[in-house]
């Protein structure tokens, strides 16, 4: 038996909206630690890792580990039937081929119950090595979204070069209408951590990435006020959105190398 109760349906809506265009179906792995998911986009260029720790739910019950194969787009549509502040309860029996979703209004005067069919999904589980990153940049998530959008839509760039030095982080593109760059400097004040740009750097690093993936990752912006980018020479970029202290959505993106 699996049961997980989440105070706000809104969080699950945001998570699904953040990942459903990149990975349309995935296995939710349920264990006593919580709910996790790993999946690659169809081109195997990026990987999504989700963790919702059990302490983010009240209650959370998992008698034995379960793998729930879910069509994320269908689940996102179903979650739209919940109001943002509805209490979400997910339940599944062991060996069940359905996941039950229950939405309860805060005043407890409306209860919606849905049964979602599960699927058998063959998915490869990848080992993500522990990495010491050359540079970790934390910035407002809205700023990151804006930069990706402007460099994509404004310049028509396909590849973005991200160069991180002690002075700042520079995003550059060359596109159909010309070229451009946006540089963010480290902010002096850390009074408002969510509004700050903070660079922790062991050594300067420059990498090239496909911009359209970064734009896709930015759909997770509503999940967190800040985002971190972790970069090391010739390894995938990590774009992490933390959900308070109860979990994260991480996107890994393989770099492009100059031929």
């Amino acid at each position: 038996m699996f049961e997980a109760r989440l105070a706000q349906s809104n969080l699950m809506k945001k998570i699904l909206d953040a990942i459903k265009d990149l990975i349309t179906e995935a296995n939710l792995e349920i264990s006593s630690g919580g709910i996790s998911l790993q999946g690659m986009d169809s081109s195997h260029v990026s990987l999504v890792a989700l963790l919702m720790r059990s302490d983010g739910f009240s209650p959370f019950r998992c008698d034995r580990n379960l793998t729930l194969g879910v069509n994320l787009q269908a689940m996102a549509k179903l979650m739209k039937c919940a109001s943002n502040d509805d209490i979400l309860t997910m339940t599944a029996e062991d060996n069940s081929d359905t996941l039950n979703l229950q939405f309860e209004s805060p005043a407890q005067d409306k209860l919606s119950e849905f049964e979602m069919k599960l699927m058998d999904i063959d998915s490869e589980h990848l080992g993500i090595p522990e990495t010491e990153y050359d540079a970790v940049i934390r910035m407002p998530s809205s700023e990151f979204q804006r930069i990706c959008r402007d460099l994509g839509a404004g310049i028509g760039g396909e590849s973005v070069t991200i160069a991180c030095t002690k002075e700042g982080v520079k995003f550059s593109v060359t596109g159909s209408v010309g070229s451009g760059s946006i540089t963010l400097k480290q902010t002096g004040s850390v009074d408002k951590p969510a509004e700050s740009v903070v660079i922790n750097m062991a050594q300067p690093v420059t990498l090239i990435f496909a911009l359209r993936y970064l734009n896709s990752f930015a759909k997770a912006t509503p999940l967190s006020e800040s985002v971190s980018l972790s970069m090391s020479r010739e390894v995938p970029l990590v774009v992490e959105y933390k959900m308070n202290d109860t979990g994260y959505v991480r996107f890994y993106l393989a770099p492009k190398l100059e031929d």
């Binding site: 195997h44 990987l47 490869e124 990848l126 090595p129 393989a254 492009k256 100059e258 031929d259």
Partner: peptide, 14 residues
């Protein structure tokens, strides 16, 4: 010219 690498180039199958 750039070459797009794959996640499989970095993360091993488990």
């Amino acid at each position: 010219q750039t070459v797009q690498l794959s996640i499989h180039d970095y993360f091993p199958l488990q």
